[in-house]
Design a protein around this nucleic acid. Structure first.
Lengths: 229, 229
DNA sequence: CGCGGCTTTGATGTTCATCAAGTAAAGTGG
DNA sequence: CCACTTTACTTGATGAACATCAAAGCCGCG
């Protein structure tokens, strides 16, 4: 993990995060923000740690995951650039009830939570843009979770492959940023069943598999499977 | 569904919802708010409808549920008094992607969303209290959903019974406000398996069942079951 | 170059959904 | 208010879906 320096004026996060901040606020934030680089695999946040920062993902991919009360590890969501990295709890809890780790080399921009709170209190337009963003983030997590829950193994794997293809990579050929075990932790299945299901898709010429490289050959059929099973 | 009149000054919602509103704002809101009474079973919001209101549950119980893309009906959450009834989507979506219905006689206080937005824009402290509340709500939904997902049937039923006992009713003797079928829709199981599991709990003297009346006899054991299976 | 984690396939057993069939309860209309 | 209809509840039998166990090849990393 390395610290970086950057200029907020030319940062693409500014358009989202600071759209409604005043010029002086932007300048102030630029001075106090901390930008860090994480290698794939590095832990960014540990479940149980105190929440002090508000963090955006500038580059890379991260996974949010947690150790449930029965001892199983579950992946809550995969975040891509311009998503905010800590979930909602930052404004209601004192400690993280999930962990975050990089699943690709990533850059994260953090601002002290107190500063963000100060901004919210003093600037309604800024507050509203945070609400909108939070709203979209948690909505997506809830809906995705429900959609996965109502499917069986074939439908679940199809749904996840479409998620990576459509939401994360916007393309039919991509490198899976997660292991088969991690897909199992997203979908609530076993690793073996993920592999078996993907093998079936390959045999049916729906996808091509080469290690972590996946190519979706028949998206229509994958969509159909995701809808009926 | 009946319209009611009430005085915001003495309303318990005021402490949460209007804690940081100015006196003139409170007066203004009191004039434009609409309070409605719903009988158990009545639909409050229909999936697909346009989102126009911000609503709090003043009295009763409601369920949030949705028709997933595979055609299965799923219950997202059960809300109790002082919870807010619409989810976060109200600030990011134009249409509801879930329905809400009363599962007990309920009173709901609604304010035009535009008015709430106006308040947020003009009052950072109010905005922050909304963020806190939203944060808690969606966090609870996400965590509950994950906790249920990682359990097997026995653990799921135990978890739900504890949810009603601890979170909704704060007591060991209560009337289930939902059918067995609805418990199935919360937990992602079949109705038959809910009944079978509850029957087993009864045979093991963990709970007493009389129709919809449930008494938890051995909470320690129920908790244990919820943690290990 | 060898160790540990990831991937893969097969065989087996458990868990759970489905189907069926009957009872009880709750609403509905005359 | 009672016959009627519908919905909720319950139990058992069966089969399908899925997890678990086992074993082996692969790959990356120290």
């Amino acid at each position: 993990m390395n610290d970086l320096t950057c200029n907020c004026e030319i940062c693409e996060l500014k358009d989202i995060f600071l759209k409604h901040a005043s010029t002086s606020d932007v300048e102030n934030i630029c001075n106090i923000k901390v930008e860090k680089e994480y290698k794939s695999g590095e832990i960014i946040v540990n479940q149980g740690e105190e929440i002090n920062d508000f963090s955006y993902l500038k580059k890379g991919l991260v996974k949010l995951f947690r150790l449930g009360s029965t001892g199983k590890e579950q992946i809550i969501s995969i975040a891509k650039p311009l998503d905010f990295v800590n979930l909602l709890s930052i404004f209601s809890d004192k400690y993280y009830n999930y962990s975050v780790s990089a699943i690709a080399d990533s850059i994260i921009c953090s601002i002290k939570l107190d500063e963000v709170k100060r901004l919210i209190l003093g600037n309604g337009r800024f507050a509203f843009s945070i609400i909108e963003k939070m709203s979209r983030t948690s909505d997506k997590i809830i809906i995705d979770s429900l959609e996965i829950k109502q499917r069986q193994v074939f439908g679940r794997v199809a749904y996840i492959l479409l998620f990576f293809s459509n939401y994360i990579f916007s393309g039919n050929l991509f490198e899976l940023p997660v292991t088969r075990k991690e897909i199992a932790e997203i979908t609530g299945m076993t690793t073996e069943n993920i592999i078996r299901t993907m093998s079936t898709f390959r045999q049916d010429n729906i996808i091509r598999i080469n290690g972590k490289t996946i190519e979706i050959l028949d998206k229509a059929r994958l969509l159909k499977i995701s809808e009926v099973s």
